[in-house]
Each structure stands twice: as C-alpha cells, then as structure tokens.
Write a protein that binds this DNA or RNA. Structure first.
Length: 876
RNA sequence: GGGAGCAUAGCUCAGCUGGUUCAGAGCACCUGCCUUACAAGCAGGGGGUCACAGGUUCGAAUCCUGUUGCUCCCA
C-alpha cells in the first residue's frame, strides 16, 4: 500500500463522520452507566459558524469524546435558539425586500413567514458543526420554539406568576423607536458621538430678570422637565431653593429641588430633571416624588404632552427648538461635547430611555440558592476568578424585564378582560376564560372577550430552562431522561453571557429541579485577531471557519484553536496556529507511514530495543498522568500540549529513531507489536483533540471489523511509572545531544561516526543505554576510561565525556569553557552550602526540601570534581 | 465614581500549596542539513533584572503594601 507523504484531510473527514453517524456512536439512551452530559449553548438561528463557535464547540467535543472513551454514557445535546429580536429583524428585512410590510400582516401570517425562514436557514450552523467533527447526539436536537419547548416556557411563566414572582410594572427601558420594542441592556451598543451641550436659561417664576441656566445635550426634552435640581451646598443657587422656574417656550412652572447627586462642576451645576426620558432622572424623580411626563410616542415623535412640535420627530425637533430658543434669547451658549449614545444592536436606531409598562420577574429571592451554590463551589466556575464578577452581579441584581414587543417568541400567557383593567394568567385561553369568569363573576364571558397580551417573552426566559427543557423536565418532571441526564456535567460558554444566561440557568435549576444544572462552567475567552480586536463581520477580520477547515483540515483547526486558549483568556487568533495544527497532523501521519512501511521479520531478535520500549511505556504512563491532571483542572490547552509533546518529541523524535531499523532491513516482531500498541494508545489520547486523523490511522493500524471505532474504544488506564528509568533516559539523551552539538559546532556531518570515552562511576546506566546512545549519536565505539590524548571533553553531571578528534583541538577554548562551567558550579555550590549552613533553613524548611538541597550539594561536588579533573588533564 | 483582573523571551501564554523538575512552552529568530517517515521536515543554538518601588521570610516571578500602565464589569 502506498500512503501519501502528505496527510490529506479531505480524503477522510466526511467518510468517518458518516461512519460515526451510521453506527449511532453519538446517540445516548439512559442505561446503567454513569452519564456524562453537556448541553450546547444553543446558537442563534440567524447565526453562521464563527470562530467563537469553533473554539467553544471544539472544547465541548474534546470533553465529550474523552468521556465517551472513558466508558461513560456521553450525551451532548445540540440545538438552536430562536433569538427573538435578531430573527424578527432578519425576517422583517427579508419581507421588506419582497415589498411586504410587517404591519400589513397578521401575527399568524408573520409567524408563518418566520418559521419558513427558520426552517430554511436555522439549521445551517448545526450542519457546519458536523464539519468540525462535533459528536452531538443529533437525534436529540432541540429548538427553543418548538411546541414542547414553548409549552415549558409558558408553564414556568404561569407558575412564577402564581408564586408572585412575576408582576407588571412601570420601568425605564431601552426603547428602540424603529423596532418599536424594549431592548435589554446587552442589546444596546454605546458609541461615542459628537454632540452639543446647550446652555438654556429658565426664568424664575415671579421675577422679570432672574434666571437659572441648565446644560443639556437634548434640548427637545425640556418639554418633559418636571424639576431643576441643584446641589444643596452650591452657593450659586442657595437663594433659589424652593422657588420655581418656567420652562422656556411653554412657560410651565417646575420646582427647583436640591440633591447631593448633582455634580457641581458639570455644566452649570443646575440639572434639568426629565424623569420620563432619562434613567438617572427617573431615579431622582422617584426619590423626590416628581411627576413623570412622557412627551414621546413609540415611534420617536413628540406627543401632545409636549404642547409644541407635536407629531414631529425627536431629532427634527432638536434642531428646531434650538433655533427657536436662540431666537427668543433663552439659549445662552452651546459647546461641543462628546456623549455616549446608545444604539440598537439590531436596527441601529438611537435608543430612547422610555417609561413603559412591562412584565418583570422579581429577582431578590430566586437568586439566593444560585448565589450561594456558586460561592461554595457546588457549581464551579473555571477559571474561578469569575466568581467575583458573578457575586457582584447577583448581589446587585435588578428585577428582570422579561417582555419584548415582538411576535417571534413565546407569547405572554396573560389575558386582558374586555371592558375592564383586569387580566388573568393561564397556560391556555380556555383556562384563562375559566379564571376570568371566576374573577369577574361573569359567566357570560366568552373567549372573544379575552385579549392575550401581544408581547413575547425575552429569549433568555426560554433558554434559562435549556438544561431542563431539552429533557422535557418541566412538563414531565419525573421522566427517565431528565432523571438520568440532569444535572449535566459541564457547560462551555463565553464569560459575556455569564449573567444573562449561566446565572439564570442556575436560578431556574434550583427553582425547578432543586439542584444545580451543571457541575462545571468552563468559560472560554473571546477570539480576537492578531491585533487584539474582536472578530466581527463589520471589521472583516474573521476568517471563514469552513474555508479554514478546507485549508488545514478540521483536526488542524481544532488543535490550532486549542494551542493558545487558556480558560477565560482571550485568544489572539493567528492562521499560523492552524498551520501548526496541520503540521502536527502531518507529523503523526508520517509516523504512521513509517510504521506501516516496515517489513516485519518475526524470527529476528529484538533485545536491543527492550530499553527503548520500556522507556516509552513509562514515559507514556507519566504523560497520561499529567494529561489526566490537566483535564481534571480544565486546562485543555495544557492537555493538548502534553499529548503534542508526547507524540512529537518523545514518540517521533526519540522512540522511533531508537527502534527504526536501517533502511532496507526488517523490524523484529516484538518491537513491531510494541510499537503498534504505542501508536494505538497515542491515537486514543489524541482522539478527543483530532478525531478524524486518529480514526483513519486507528482503522488502518490493525485489522478492524465493521462497527468498530476509535471513538468508542477504551481510554488508556493510568499506570504507575518507573521514575528512575525516566531520569536515566534523560542522562542518555543529554549525552546524545552533547555529541550532536559537538558535531554541529565544529561543522561536522552527522554521518561522521565518533568514538566516545566516558569516565563515570555509574557505568551500568551507560551500558543499559549503550545501543541507543551509539545509534542516535552515531558512535563507532563507546568505552569507559580517562580522557585520551588529543580528545575533546565535556562534563555531564559527574561524568566526563571524551571524544578523540583528529586534527586541531583548540585547547585554550576548551579550557575557557570548562573554567566558565567550573566557576558557575562553584557559585551554585556556594549558595547551596550557605543554605545548608543556615540553621534556620535546616530547622524551618520541609525535610524533603532540605534533602533536595543535600542532593544538589552532592551533585555539584561531583561535577566540580569532574571538571577539575578534566582541566588538570588539559593542562598536563 | 465603585469593583475585579492582568503586567514573565520579539509574539501568545504556562508557572497549581513560597525552595534548580524555577526562570519554562509554542511560535518567531540564527546556524547547518533535500540524512530513504515527514522541508508541513531533521539536528543544534541564541534570547528574559519575571512592570516599578518597598516590605514579610533563612529563601520571593510566586505572599503583602504602594506606584505606573492596560483590560473588563457595574454606575
């Protein structure tokens, strides 16, 4: 069989993914095994795969695949999120292109269009995840708006309402006048925008020439003012306390109040208070019991409460009123000013802080177990530094505004009774009717007399149930799936949504299951470009993951992502990382080529390789232990590094070179079998990181049956290892490296065989490694003894290596380097002796630390002795 | 304004409970090699006062305090 010298991922990836699916390896059903469950952070149906998903899902796949190989019943539940605002905006835009206005459609018609759109585009991202190799249980794919999922959301709403946690209230919300909906804080993007600060004077009531001047960037809102506020200690305004000022143009009188909140240095030190149109003013208004005067319509035009400019847009009015104020000499001056203006993430309209009637969830009590169980590590955050952030949020949490003025989502199950201000909350219209009849005592009420609230619930209000609802745990709280899979094990997500999503899932978990939703939360970083900028469509600095996978292979990109992604830290993505991943794949591929290319001669004896085999077996055990520790601490990047070095350095660079037969010669059967076993174990520990290439190699390493797969093979068991053997090996390797270095520095070819003479008190070590050292250092002979005439020497630990060299030996240079070493080692010994001579050290330090120092001392002394002997031989 | 985090090689980062397995990895760089698995490679090498200043300690990259610079969260 001829195998390509370059690994070609395209040849194998689709083949093995199809094979895995065909044999249902990723599907999970409850059984007697220990479950391992991950629910995917459901991507938006509007989304396409980006680098953040790549990182996030690679990590989930690594964890899932490892658990599956460990014999756990692994279940990774995939799905998508309906994303109310984003999707509705997308559908509205799509309709607009077709010439259809949303306002011309009924709710049902619109939802039909939206569902069609979702069916067409909503699954794209999941298909893309398959290219990445994601081992999700596709039979369990969920969508947050499918009937069973929505039913759970509605049930929870009704339940929380009945418990008294949900209420309707007036609040200041971020209003998008274009989308005509309230937005949550995270859907608002603040941009620094050049603006003007208008200084406007208000006449004091009952005077002819007394004024107070305020400064504002929004002169149109003076029409909604209900007070002017000054600092109580501000000397400039002492005489005005308790007086009233007249709003220019409309002459409505408003009180002048005092509050320490006002910054005296800002503007004129006098603050106009517009409770309906500024969040801070709103708070101030509550405190001082001010009237809330809303002068804006939902679309951003002024209403009749403004008295003037009614029906005109807020920005048009800003210009006009500034002009009028100037003409009528109310405008004192204007100055340039930079202000942070909120824009809608979806429509880019300038956000209007607006008083509105919304639905809220009270957060004060439901958050208690969610806070407590993160602080006591029942739910562990990785890295733990996020606990602080989590706590500060949970301790200062505000009630959650859960209503959105949209159609795409779960419609709020509140029904208003015609002809009254009453409403009822129920899971169905029929139940609502019953309730309404009871409530009103009017048995004549019909369905037609009820009007369901037109708004839908915040998308997070459905996704906070995700770890429960994917197993239908709200509707059937005792079903076998939810009992088996819940609580889930690990959640992998971005710190950006720690509050919006993770915290709320924990709340819902305790509220509805009385238990944490997951044990571990692994927080990934944000994927940034080389310059540290967040990857975004508008910057165009994000590579297309699919193209990247075509170029470097899915395995290459997966490992590339993980090379530089410690938990919780941002990842500065460079295509070089994928290249490195691809190169690693190629390296492994070539190791496979080498092994497969060998002729095996089972009559041949292979004792010479025994030490190499013993060494690698122990080295593997050591690395496996390290690997397990890395996984246990969620240090995924380090875990990859461990197997990377094991495969490349230890297996390829050392082990294979040790046992490789000379060209044209066969390998003995015992060494071959051992090597196949090592390769197979390597494929196992590499598989979670690079599933495709490892499966391809594993399938071809030995005869396999249809239905067998690496992805369900048993993970290697961690064995004890012989540490002494491993340290002996490092001595042998050091000898090899020294000889190679000598050749290199003297410009000699590796083909020139050299003679090596070792002066040592531990000859057995060198005898054990004789064959390996001879082969790797290309020695013609290895003997024990003193340095002969005309040889160059080096000192390794307490041992002296000599290599006879024909021709020039620069005795002076050699002496200099030996002296330098001697000096360093003496200095080192000195510091060690100082430590040991210090009574306080010997008494206070741990015994093993003191013991280590004693060993250092002995080593240093031996080394000094060897160096001195070399030097004296040199001068002799 | 309040809170948190970070600062280690040219770059990205490890360094878990203070002690040569403590100054490390990968990439980049330099030198020499197309050596019959791999140039997507091999062998070898250089490079850091661990931000700055104090302190605790027998001993500090590691613990404490302050300074400077950057980042994030909340307002």
């Amino acid at each position: 069989m001829s195998i390509s010298a370059k690994y070609n991922p395209a040849d194998v990836e689709d083949k093995w993914y199809a094979y895995w699916l065909k044999h249902n390896f990723f599907h999970s059903e409850p059984d007697e095994r220990e479950p391992y469950t991950i629910v995917i952070p459901p991507p938006n149906v509007t989304g396409v795969l980006h680098m953040g998903h790549m990182l996030n899902n690679t990590i989930q796949d690594v964890l899932t695949r490892k658990a599956r190989m460990e014999g756990k019943n692994a279940c990774w539940v995939p799905g998508t999120d309906h994303a109310s605002i984003a999707t509705e905006a997308r559908v509205v835009a799509m309709l607009k292109e077709k010439g259809i206005e949303k306002s011309s459609l009924s709710r049902e018609q619109f939802l039909d269009y939206a569902m069609d759109w979702k069916d067409k585009y909503g699954g794209i991202i999941l298909e893309q995840l398959k290219k990445l190799g994601a081992s999700c249980d596709w039979a369990r794919t969920r969508f947050t708006m499918e009937p069973e999922m929505s039913a759970q959301v509605i049930k929870v709403f009704v339940d929380l309402y009945q418990k008294g946690y949900i209420y309707r209230g007036i609040r200041m919300v971020n209003w998008d006048p274009q989308g005509k909906t309230a937005l949550s804080d995270d859907e608002v993007i603040y941009k620094e925008t050049p603006a003007k600060l208008y200084h406007i004077r208000y006449q004091i009531e009952g005077t002819t020439d007394e004024w107070i001047t305020i400064a504002t960037v929004r002169p149109e809102t003076i029409l909604g003012d209900t007070a002017i506020c000054v600092h109580p200690d501000d000397a400039r305004y002492q005489h005005l306390h308790g007086r009233r000022a007249l709003i220019p143009l409309i002459n409505r009188p408003i009180p002048i109040i005092t509050d320490g909140y006002v910054e005296r240095e800002f503007g004129t030190g006098a603050l106009k208070v517009t409770p309906a149109h500024d969040p801070n003013d709103y708070e101030l208004g509550l405190k001082h019991n001010l009237e809330v005067l809303d002068i804006l319509n939902d679309d951003g035009t002024l209403n009749e409460k403004a008295e003037i400019y009614v029906g005109q847009d807020r920005f048009v009015v800003r210009k006009k009123i500034a002009k009028e104020l100037e003409e009528k000499e109310y405008l004192v001056k204007t100055e340039d000013y930079k202000s942070n203006v909120g824009h809608s993430e979806r429509t880019n309209a300038v956000i209007e802080p607006k008083i509105s009637l919304q639905w809220f969830l009270k957060m004060d009590t439901v958050t208690i177990p969610a806070l407590e169980n993160v602080l006591n590590d029942t739910v562990q955050l990785h890295p733990p530094k996020f606990k602080n952030m989590y706590r500060s949020w949970m301790e200062n949490v505000r009630d959650w505004c859960i209503s959105r003025q949209l159609w795409w989502g779960q419609q709020i199950p509140a029904y208003y009774i015609s002809g009254s201000r009453e409403f009822v909350v129920a899971e169905t219209a029929e139940e609502a009717l019953q309730l309404a009849r009871q409530k009103t005592g009017n048995n004549q009420l019909q369905l037609a007399d009820l009007q369901q609230d037109p708004d839908v619930l915040d998308t997070w209000f459905s996704s906070w149930l995700w770890p429960i609802s994917v197993f239908n745990g709200i509707l059937e709280p005792d079903n076998k799936d939810v009992n088996y899979y819940y609580p889930t094990n690990d959640l992998v997500t971005a710190p950006e949504i720690l509050f919006f999503w993770v915290a709320r899932m924990i709340i819902a978990g305790y509220e509805y299951r009385g238990e944490r939703p997951f044990k571990n939360v692994y927080l990934t970083g944000i994927v940034r470009d080389k310059q540290g900028r967040k990857m975004s469509k508008s910057l165009g600095n994000s590579p297309d993951p699919l193209e990247l996978m075509v170029k470097y292979g899915a395995d290459g990109v997966r490992t590339g992502m993980l090379f530089s992604s410690p938990a919780g830290n941002d990842l500065l993505y460079d295509e070089k990382l994928s290249e490195q991943g691809r190169n690693f794949n190629n390296k492994i591929w070539n190791a496979f080529r080498l092994i497969k290319g060998w002729e095996v001669d089972s009559s041949k004896r292979g004792e010479a390789n025994a030490v190499a085999i013993a060494w690698f077996r122990n080295r593997f055990a050591q690395a496996l232990q390290e690997l397990e520790e890395n996984f246990a601490g969620f240090r995924i990047s380090d875990a990859l590094q461990t197997v990377y070095k094991l495969a490349w350095d230890d297996f390829c660079s050392w082990y294979l070179e040790m046992i490789k037969p000379p060209f044209g010669e066969a390998i003995d059967g015992a060494t071959y079998e051992a090597t196949l076993g090592f390769m197979e174990d390597l494929m196992k520990v590499l598989h979670p990181f690079m599933p495709f290439i490892t499966e391809e190699i594993w399938q071809n390493l030995k005869e396999r049956q249809e239905g067998e797969s690496l992805c369900v093979s048993a993970w290697p068991k961690a064995d004890q290892f012989n540490a002494g053997l491993l340290t002996d090996a490092t001595v042998a390797f050091e000898v090899v490296q020294n000889v190679r270095n000598l050749r290199n520095s003297r410009g000699m070819s590796p083909k020139d065989a050299l003679q090596l003479i070792i002066r040592t008190e531990r000859p057995q070590l060198y005898r054990d490694w004789d064959g390996v050292v001879r082969k790797l250092a290309n020695l013609s002979d290895l003997q024990f003894g003193d340095k002969p005439e005309g040889a160059i020497s080096m000192v390794i630990g307490p041992d002296e290596l000599s290599i006879p060299l024909a021709g020039s030996i620069d005795a002076a240079a050699e002496k200099e380097s030996l002296l330098k070493e001697l000096e360093y080692t003496r200095g080192f010994l000195d510091s060690v002796e100082k430590k040991l001579g210090n009574e306080r050290f010997v008494n206070n330090a741990k015994p093993e630390v003191v013991e280590a120092e004693r060993k250092k001392k002995a080593d240093a002394e031996a080394r000094i002795k060897a160096l001195e002997e070399s030097l004296s031989a040199l001068s002799a």
